[in-house]
Amino acid sequence: MEILLSLLVGVLMSVSVWMLLSRNLVKFLFGLVLISNVANLIIFKVGGLTMGAPPLIVDGIAAEYANSLPQALVLTAIVIGFGLVSFTLVLALKAYQAIGTLNVDEMTLAEKRQDPDDSSEPS
């Protein structure tokens, strides 16, 4: 199981890096969703997997128990990731509406070279 998860982390990471390198903002976003899930998987995996054991055990009875901290961490990370991804989605939409392109190479409004003679568009 651990090996399977590690392999999954590797595959997902390479896929997401490939997508993050894309010029297309939407592809970049999907890459971002993937890579944040990869990070969650890593936390989940390194926290140690205990199959079929409860996180809380009855007082006085020694039993196998699962570490619940990684799950708490992953939950927090998921919540934050959810907020960030939805924000980025809206930002991409707004940027597309305002700038008219999703190609990041063409998003150069903020860094237009200033021509001293052309004062029509100060950035």
């Binding site: 903002l25 890579i35 944040s36 924000f87 930002l91 305002a98 990041v104 998003m107 150069t108 409004l109």
Partner: peptide
């Protein structure tokens, strides 16, 4: 406005990667 969104895309993208 347009310019602000344009700057925001770069800021958000790189900062999210750093977060991950």
């Amino acid at each position: 406005n347009k310019v602000q969104l344009d700057g925001a895309v770069k800021y958000v993208a790189i900062n999210l990667i750093s977060t991950v």
